[in-house]
Structure formats: structure tokens, C-alpha cells
């Protein structure tokens, strides 16, 4: 089987990652995220029809009129409809919506129009943020315990790299960031970690059994050995995600985009961030195989 020289290209990869990160952070700094209704709140309009309308038509009409993030629900009875829009509330929105719907030729009455607050409160956000930090901290401890602290550092940087780039793309292209996208980001974290650990596991195995000291060569062997697995897994997951993206409709489009980018970047980062970073961190065989001598010293100190 052909062996690719992954580590030989690591300089190029570092530069690529750096550029991507700069663009992502730049985008986040200059134009923030386009947060969805879940985070910002908006306007709620309750209307009553003479006859039960088609909810999909209502949604279509409102989206054609450039309302964003439209959710349309039956409310109590089939003739009553609750519409939530991501649109700063002003007293005219209700009338505007109703007149648009009336243009479709049906009889519609406005019952109420009010602003609605965010679904995700500040407290929820802060709590989740703290949770995430704690989770990362514990993962680092686990990796440091099972592998070595240099691996933990590599895995952490790879995770940050992936998350920043995905969020950066959402900011750069003004894609809407809602709760489903947040779920996707969490999934990317899980996936990226999974990928990184699989490569790390093979690196650890190869370092232990290999007789050569040249780390880039050992890394290359390990990465090549897991390459077919990496491609098969990323491939199948991307297949599912492409199906979601192309056929799943509007609501899971952003979810799929976040995951597709995340898995692409995650696969790349497990090789070029998580693993390649171990070289400048000066990973050595002794880091994984405890030196016997030290243990003897400790035992001697015991009375």
C-alpha cells in the first residue's frame, strides 16, 4: 500500500490552519454571528382564519416577503395560527403580516402581535459555557492520564481549531446560528475528539513497538495505517450529511453545513493539528514508556 508523507507537508498545513483561523477570528470580530430567533427573540403574531389554511403556504408567503426565521404553528384550533418571526417588534408588524396573508385571497384576522424574548436565556448560556469548559478540562485530564500531557495539549488545540473555524464560516457567510447549529457544534466536538483519539492510539502503539527514534516517520506510519479507516468513517458520515443537506429542507440545512465543515476540518486537524503539533512539542519515546530508573529511586526512598 502506498505511504503518504503526511508529516513532510506539515509546514504547509500549519500555514493553512493559521490562515483559516485568522480569517475565522477576523470574521467573528468584525461581523459577529447572525444569531437566530432562539437567541435573539423577535415578534409573535397570532392570526385567525375563516378556514383551516396550509401552514407551508403561510411560511412560503412570509419568507418570500423577506421575513427571516419564520415558524408557523397551529394554535389551539386548526383555523388559528401562531407565527414567530425574527424581526424586531414594532406595532406595525402584525398588520403587515396580516395584509400579506390577505393578499393570498383568504380572510384573516389579527388577534395579537407582541414581541417574544429569547428562548436561550443568559443564565442558560453562561451555564452551558461553563459546562463546556469543565468538559474540556476533564477530557484533557483523561487524555493526559491515558496518553501524556503533550497529547492532551494537541487534542485541545485541535478542538479549538475546529470549533473556531466552523463558527467563523457561519460568521463570514452570515449563515443563521440557532440551537440546531449549536447542537451541530457539540457534535463536531465529539467527532473531532473521536478522530483525534483514534490517530493518537495508533501513534502510541507504533511508538511503543517501533525501534526508530525519528518521530515524523513513526507518525507517518501511524497515520497511513489509520487512513483507510479515517476515510471510510468520514466518508460514510459525509454521505449521511450530504443527504441531509440536499434533501432535508431548509430547517436542517445549516445543521448539515456546520457538520460537513466540522468533519472536514476535524479530519484534517486530527492529522495536522493534533498529531503534527506533537513534533514541535518534542514528544519522545520516554514520554510514553516510563523510565524504569526513576521508579527504582522512589522505592529506595521508602523506609
Amino acid at each position: 500500500m502506498r505511504q503518504f508523507d503526511f508529516m513532510g507537508k506539515r509546514r504547509l498545513a500549519f500555514i493553512t490552519s493559521a490562515i483559516l483561523l485568522i480569517i475565522a477570528i477576523g470574521a467573528l470580530a468584525t461581523q459577529q454571528l447572525n444569531l437566530g430567533l432562539d437567541f435573539t427573540g423577535g415578534t409573535l403574531v397570532e392570526v385567525k382564519y375563516e378556514e383551516a389554511p396550509s401552514l407551508d403556504d403561510i411560511r412560503g408567503t412570509l419568507e418570500d416577503a423577506d421575513f427571516r426565521d419564520v415558524s408557523v404553528q397551529n394554535f389551539g384550533a386548526s383555523t388559528e395560527v401562531l407565527i414567530r418571526l425574527q424581526q424586531a417588534y414594532d406595532p406595525d408588524v402584525g398588520e403587515e403580516v396580516v395584509s400579506l396573508l390577505r393578499d393570498e385571497g383568504t380572510d384573516v384576522d389579527l388577534i395579537r402581535a407582541e414581541f417574544v424574548g429569547a428562548q436561550v436565556g443568559d443564565q442558560l448560556r453562561d451555564q452551558s459555557g461553563m459546562g463546556m469548559l469543565l468538559a474540556l478540562g476533564l477530557v484533557m485530564l483523561y487524555v493526559a492520564f491515558r496518553f501524556q500531557y503533550k497529547f492532551a495539549l494537541g487534542a485541545l488545540l485541535a478542538l479549538l481549531h475546529d470549533v473556531i473555524i466552523v463558527i467563523g464560516v457561519f460568521s463570514l457567510f452570515g449563515l443563521e446560528f440557532d440551537l440546531t447549529v449549536l447542537a451541530a457544534i457539540l457534535a463536531v466536538i465529539g467527532y473531532s475528539l473521536n478522530d483525534t483519539i483514534v490517530v493518537y492510539d495508533r501513534i502510541r502503539e507504533n511508538i511503543r513497538k517501533s525501534r526508530i527514534e525519528h518521530m515524523p516517520t513513526i507518525f507517518n506510519e501511524a497515520i497511513n495505517a489509520t487512513l483507510s479507516r479515517t476515510l471510510a468513517t468520514s466518508g460514510t458520515t459525509l454521505l449521511v450529511l450530504l443527504a441531509l443537506l440536499l434533501l432535508g429542507g431548509d430547517l436542517i440545512r445549516n445543521f448539515s453545513i456546520a457538520l460537513i465543515i466540522g468533519i472536514g476540518v476535524g479530519t484534517f486537524s486530527s492529522i495536522y493539528v493534533a498529531s503534527a503539533l506533537l513534533i514541535p512539542l518534542r514528544l519522545q519515546r520516554q514520554d510514553l514508556i516510563p523510565a524504569k530508573k526513576e521508579n527504582d529511586d522512589e522505592e529506595e526512598e521508602l523506609p
Binding site: G131, L134, A183, G190, N194, V198
Partner: peptide, 26 residues
């Protein structure tokens, strides 16, 4: 086994903490 267990346990660790601290959709 070691790859699968390590990879899954780290992800599980994240999930369990998100569960105990996070609320709602998280």
C-alpha cells in the same frame, strides 16, 4: 478495542458533563 474505548470514553465524558451542567437543548 483500545482505540474504540478511548475514543468513545472521551466523547462520553464530554456528553456526561454537558448533561449534568447544561440545560434544555444542550
Amino acid at each position: 478495542v483500545s482505540s474504540i474505548v478511548d475514543a468513545n470514553l472521551t466523547t462520553l465524558l464530554v456528553a456526561v458533563i454537558l448533561f449534568s451542567i447544561g440545560t434544555g437543548p444542550v
